Each structure stands twice: as C-alpha cells, then as structure tokens.
Amino acid sequence: MNQTRAVLCGYYGMGNAGDEALLMSLLQMLPKSVEPIVLSGNPQATKKQYGVLSYRRKSTLAILNILKQSDIFIWGGGSLMQDSTSIASPIYYAGLMALAQQKGLKTIAWAQGIGPLNKSLTRWLTKQTLLGCDAISVRDTASAKLLSSWQINSVIAPDPVWALQSKPVTSLKDVSQPKVAVVLRSHPLLTANRLQTLIEALGDFQKQTNSFILLIPFQPVQDRAIADKIATQLEQNYTVMSIADPQELKGLFKQVKMAIGMRLHSLIMAAAEGCNCFALSYDPKVSYLMSEIDLPGYELTNLPDDPQEISRTWQEHYDHGEALDRVQIQSIIDRSLIHQQLLSQVITNS
C-alpha cells in the first residue's frame, strides 16, 4: 500500500507557540499511513523539531513540485482566513488551497477559526475556497454559523490543542512559591496606558499573593518586548521564559496556580492542564472561548482604569477561582478528537 502524502499549510515556522502547538497536534492526529510535508517559514527548524519533510512556505517552485507529488492538502488549524491583521494572509492561504484543488488534491480545512472577515473580497475568497473543500472542521460556533449561512457543511469541535500530549518541565523545580503565568501580546488594543495599568496591577497582585511571576512570550518577536517591560517594573520573583517545544510549553501550565492570558492557546493549554485561568480578550476567538468554558476575564476595550480594581479581581480569582475539573477537561479533549476522525475519514477514502 502506497503511503499517502499530505501537504500541511499554516502559520508554521514563524515563531508562534500557538501555531506550533496546532502543527504538533495535527502531526499527532494524522494516521500513520500519511507522510506529512510541512510548508514553513523556517523549514530547517521545522524539519529538526518534528522530523518531517519541510519546504519554504513562499517558494513557488517548491510548492508546485510538492503539490504534483501529493494526495491531500490541509489547512492545519488556526485563524488563517481573517483580514483583521492583513489582507495578504487570506489571499495567500486561499491561493494555495485553490491551487491544490485545481491540481486535483483532496483538500481539508482543518480546525479553522473563520474571521473576522471585514472586506467583501476576503469573504468571497473564503466562501469560494471552502466550497471546493472535501471536508471542513471548525473550532467555534461562530465559524460554524458563518459557514452555515453560506450553505457550507462543517463539523465543529474544540481546538485540537486541548488534546495535545504534554511533557513535564523541570526548570522550575526549585521555585517553591505559587507560580502565576502571564502571557501578553502586542496588539493595537493593548495601548501603552492599558499595558501600564496591567503592569501596576500585576505588581500589587504579586505583593498581595507572594507569587512567582512567569512572563511567557508565545511569539518572542512580538511579545518579548512586553515581557521585558513588565520585568523591569517587578522588583523580584519573576522570570521570562521562552519554550520552543509545544508539548513542554503546555506541560509548564501543570505547575502553574493561575494563568493570565491574552493569547488563545495560552488559555487553552492552561485550562487543559487544570490551571486556574483569567482571560484578557483582544479578539472574538478569545471571547468565544470565555463564553464556551465560562472563563472569567476582561475585554481589553472594557479594562478598568484602576490598577487596584484589577489587582483585587485577580486576587479574588487566585484565592477562590476554580479550574476546570478532570471530567470537564476529558470531555473537551474527547470532543476535540472529532478533528482526528475527520482526517481519518478523508484519508481512508482518498
């Protein structure tokens, strides 16, 4: 039996821990009969880390050759079709999917969060591309409703990172204080004033709880400067941590008492590991998660101006907030495996 070759396309090799976690989840869920070929911003690093074939994501010649030799094309998770950051991104992903469809490959839009789509061009591109897919899975109800309004069928399941196998992290074994993870990212809604308010709130919160602060830049090129700025205003008992292995990054949250996160996958990883979570939402996908698992937090647009108020809210959650219990977590993980079932069905029939 010949091995099936699948091209995996996403925001891979770009230094974003959330997207690397999606890639790792996809690789874990692919049937053993599939040979993955990953389009990456850093093919050498992707090949070394995951042990897979990898080619540059914007090399036209390489992509044409790979598609000619492959059977399946997969959008591998995340908010690929959205125009809130750039119109170039949806054009790129739609173009690759359309090319794969033209070449006769089976195509899968996998674990997608569709939107925001503010422009008529990107809405049209997304709809036309998805109409040509052999199978579609989405990770939130808003995406499913949008596709339903276009008369496009999809299956809905929790983000596959819920099911990502974690690994233990030993670098913090000597820290005896309760640990609080903080994951902030650069974004227009995180203005200088809001960031300063959060830093002052975090300083007061740390004093009141005697906690050890873990500043975790999920995408260092974007997030490291924020983490460093926070670090300069904390007096002691903190560290800035960058962990490249998605499984270790997820495992880190098993040691954390509370996580304060902007990035979607920081909250998913933390919640999946039984950590108490507090969200700072900058995007509908984070707000959807807050609603779906009853996660406390602030919309950044409604962030209080008073650092003391924020600190008191965090302290209350630190002292009395509850993480998801094991039964809830296992139920979410089980449902996230619907993404795996979809892969198996399409690949078995290819």
Rank of each mutant, 00 (worst) to 15 (best):
A201P: 01
A192I: 04
K207I: 03
K173G: 05
A227M: 12
L215I: 09
L214Y: 03
Q206T: 09
L198R: 01
I199K: 06
S176D: 14
T170R: 12
A192T: 15
L195C: 11
H187P: 00
V180F: 10
R194F: 02
S186H: 12
L184A: 11
I216Q: 02
S176Y: 04
Q177P: 00
A227G: 01
V175T: 13
V183A: 11
A181C: 14
L184W: 05
D223W: 03
Q196K: 12
A192H: 14
S171W: 04
R185N: 12
K173N: 09
Q196L: 14
S211W: 14
K207T: 04
I226K: 08
F205K: 04
T209Q: 06
L195R: 10
Q196V: 00
T209I: 08
N210L: 02
I213E: 03
L172V: 04
S176Q: 14
S186F: 02
S186A: 08
L172R: 06
K173W: 02
D174A: 08
F212N: 06
F218P: 00
L172S: 12
K229P: 00
K207F: 07
D228C: 10
L189N: 15
I216H: 02
T170Q: 08
L214H: 03
T209G: 13
L184P: 01
Q206D: 06
T191F: 07
K179P: 00
P220W: 15
L190I: 05
F218C: 14
Q196C: 02
P178Q: 13
A181R: 03
K179R: 15
R185D: 09
V182P: 01
K179I: 11
Q222S: 07
Q208D: 09
G203C: 13
N210R: 07
L214E: 06
I213G: 05
N193C: 06
D223Y: 06
T170P: 00
L184I: 09
I230D: 11
P217G: 05
Q196S: 07
P220N: 12
I226E: 13
N193F: 07
R194G: 01
L190E: 13
P217T: 05
L198W: 03
N193Q: 13
P188C: 13
Q177C: 03
N210G: 08
K173Y: 04
V182L: 10
I213F: 09
